[in-house]
Amino acid sequence: MQRIVAGITTLEQHLEMVKGKREVYRPPSCPHCGIKLLCQHGYYYRKADLRVQRPSLNPVPICRYRCGGCRRTCSRLPECIAPRRWYDWSVQQNSLSARLDGLPVGGGGDDGQPAVRSTARWWAWLQARGQIFAFSLRCRFRELGRASDFTGFWRQVFATLGLPRAMAWLDREMSVP
């Protein structure tokens, strides 16, 4: 099941979709048993707005669906919210981009910036899964095949696609993160 709904790039856009067109979040079938009988089953809430500016959009509702067969629930996230991560894709991209450029990254974690430990974990994740991600992205986007090394490839991904869109594409084929 695709956990990421592509094309919803901001929290504001996500909130509008939840109010008016929440059907875009309905999975085509249950990820657990495969039955196509899914009903809206309320929401769960995430603290997805970590921007320092006010007013905060937290808590952000995430649509939840329940399978009529196995009775389990599932949900899908907008492109702007990373699954199983505290910070969104754009913050991660900024940190990873700085790391690619050899700049010091991370802060104390209390000023809206990710902690050094978080950025180190993201860097390790990208290095561990980077080859698999690169292969899949190069198969889909030919222009990315021109970059020869790890650093050049990810700079090109960040410049052309951006990490949120790249992860939405990868989510169609594999589990990210």
Rank of each mutant, 00 (worst) to 15 (best):
Q53F: 14
R64D: 15
L38V: 00
R64A: 11
R72E: 14
D49M: 07
C67T: 12
G68M: 05
W86I: 10
S56D: 12
V52W: 11
H32R: 04
C63E: 12
I35S: 14
L37D: 15
Y45D: 14
G42R: 01
C67Q: 14
K47N: 13
R76F: 11
W86V: 12
A82L: 02
C70K: 00
V60S: 08
D49E: 12
G68P: 00
C33T: 12
Y43H: 13
N58Q: 02
K36S: 15
R72F: 08
E79H: 03
C80T: 07
P55N: 08
R46N: 07
A48L: 04
P83A: 03
R85W: 06
C80V: 06
Y65W: 15
Y44A: 06
L50H: 13
L50G: 04
R76P: 05
C39M: 10
L57S: 05
A48C: 08
L37S: 15
L37Q: 14
R84K: 05
S56I: 01
V52D: 07
T73C: 07
Y44V: 05
V60A: 10
P83F: 07
R84V: 03
P78K: 08
S75C: 04
L57K: 11
E79Q: 12
S75N: 01
R66L: 06
E79G: 03
L37A: 14
G69K: 00
C67R: 12
R64I: 07
K36V: 10
R64E: 15
G69L: 02
R84Y: 11
L57T: 06
G69N: 06
L38D: 03
C74V: 09
C80W: 03
C70I: 00
A82E: 10
C80F: 05
H32E: 10
G69Y: 00
P78Y: 03
Q53M: 10
R51A: 11
G68H: 05
H32V: 02
Y44W: 14
P83G: 07
E79Y: 10
P31C: 08
H41A: 15
P31M: 07
H32S: 05
R66E: 15
T73R: 01
G34V: 07
K36W: 11
R64G: 09
I62G: 05
G68K: 03
R66W: 09
P59S: 06
P55L: 13
R84Q: 04
C39K: 03
R46A: 08
R84M: 04
G68W: 08
L77A: 06
R84I: 00
R46S: 06
L38F: 09
R51H: 05
P78E: 14
E79M: 03
R54N: 13
K36E: 15
C67H: 13
R66D: 13
Y65P: 10
P59V: 02
N58P: 01
G34H: 01
P78A: 10
L77D: 08
P59Y: 02
R71M: 13
S75L: 00
I35H: 11
P55Y: 10
C33F: 11
P55V: 04
C39P: 00
W86K: 06
P83S: 09
R72S: 11
S75M: 00
R64Y: 12
K47A: 14
G42A: 08
V52C: 09
A48W: 02
Y45T: 04
S75G: 02
D49C: 07
A48V: 02
Y65D: 15
S56V: 05
R51D: 10
Y43R: 01
C80K: 01
Q53L: 13
R46I: 07
